[in-house]
Write a protein that binds this DNA or RNA. Sequence first.
DNA 1: AAGTAATTTTAGATAAGTCTAAAAATTGTT
DNA 2: AACAATTTTTAGACTTATCTAAAATTACTT
Lengths: 220, 220
Amino acid sequence: MFSLSEENYLKAIFHLERKYAGGVSTNALAEEMETKASSVTDMVKKLSEKDLVKYRKYQGVHLSEKGKRTAIEVIRKHRLWEVFLVEKLNFSWDEVHDIAEQLEHIKSEKLTDELDKFLGHPKRDPHGDPIPDGDGNFRISNKMLLADLEEGQAGICVGVKDSSTEFLRYLDKNEITLGKAIKIVQREEYDESLLIKINDKDLRISKTISKNLFVKPIES
Amino acid sequence: MFSLSEENYLKAIFHLERKYAGGVSTNALAEEMETKASSVTDMVKKLSEKDLVKYRKYQGVHLSEKGKRTAIEVIRKHRLWEVFLVEKLNFSWDEVHDIAEQLEHIKSEKLTDELDKFLGHPKRDPHGDPIPDGDGNFRISNKMLLADLEEGQAGICVGVKDSSTEFLRYLDKNEITLGKAIKIVQREEYDESLLIKINDKDLRISKTISKNLFVKPIES
DNA sequence: AAGTAATTTTAGATAAGTCTAAAAATTGTT
DNA sequence: AACAATTTTTAGACTTATCTAAAATTACTT
Ligand SMILES: [Mn+2]
Ligand SMILES: [Mn+2]
Ligand SMILES: [Mn+2]
Ligand SMILES: [Mn+2]
């Protein structure tokens, strides 16, 4: 149906629309796609022709309903394949993204649906991101950044914002994994670092870390 | 490493070298690739530059060692994915080829190896074709065409030559599946059709069918 | 409100892979 | 061996996706 490149643009626009509700700018999209603004303009025109986006010159771009459906379908496939790689093929969560970037473009509705069934209809991928169902519905959850918890508060680690290999390896090294409870022991105002309790041990983490870890706060 | 198109050409040359040992002609390759001879010439030149094939103008093309290794790796992936689709995702053997054509181009050595392990190191794909191991070694087997058995002889059905949906559906409809025993009851010289015994029933099959079914003859 | 800076679009070029039409080489036939 | 038929290659064009450089538009600053 759509080319690999078109699908990647749609996915990028989808993700950026969270941050830029008023329309995704050419430059923002160029940065996300690691390409030049002029290339973005060309592609956005093409997507517009195909009614995948709404585009007005100089005014940024929005996904159309059709574009949004397509983007979500690609994201669904990406996350299902990530689950497959981790759950069935012994990959660790820091190794799966690049392969999923390839697998997400495989075209077969039956394949996606059977994979979903085979995996037991997982609700989240290995990084805690929600997997849309076949109709494109996401499960929304009340997650927040660890950085936004107050001193004394606790939460369950439910996801990562940065899912780069480097960050995920840092988390592994410090035994921070999804599902674990984290409590803010002390906030250091000066550098915004946090002293947290996890695995019954105290650990000092920088702002960089706490701004990239999602937790579900524990009511207490 | 190599583009999807390059990989498909290498695979096609590999398959055609069985039939045309003296070199694969431009036209034969064009037909296999469903493209024009001029496109083939262009691509063959490119593959030659990259030392994937040996090519002399007007003299046809051969795979180099490097080209052969690459082709076998693609075939390995194709067949492993076909096994995955049938064994794990409830696909039938006539539905998997087109999807495997896409999956065979996914680049990750670890993925291939883990998939192989996950599937229990299968030796054959759903159509009876051998799956090369990680070093590119094929299991060779003494299969022959059903058409070449003599009256009274019997064999175990071990593979198909044509793996089109249409042929595989015909086999399903007539309950001809891999592993079953087939005996030649009678050969009709006029149209080269055969009366065979399978599933304890007599069945008349045309030359077209018997020329596309591989059997391993039963010593008797 | 004008002028400058930043962003975005256009114009023209490039690479991969394909095509058609024409030229060149090989093969087959007398 | 010469001519015709077939095969293969070349030349030139097209599409997709990208780039650089220049022009157009919008945003910011005074
Ligand atoms: Mn990912
Ligand atoms: Mn993920
Ligand atoms: Mn196949
Ligand atoms: Mn097969």
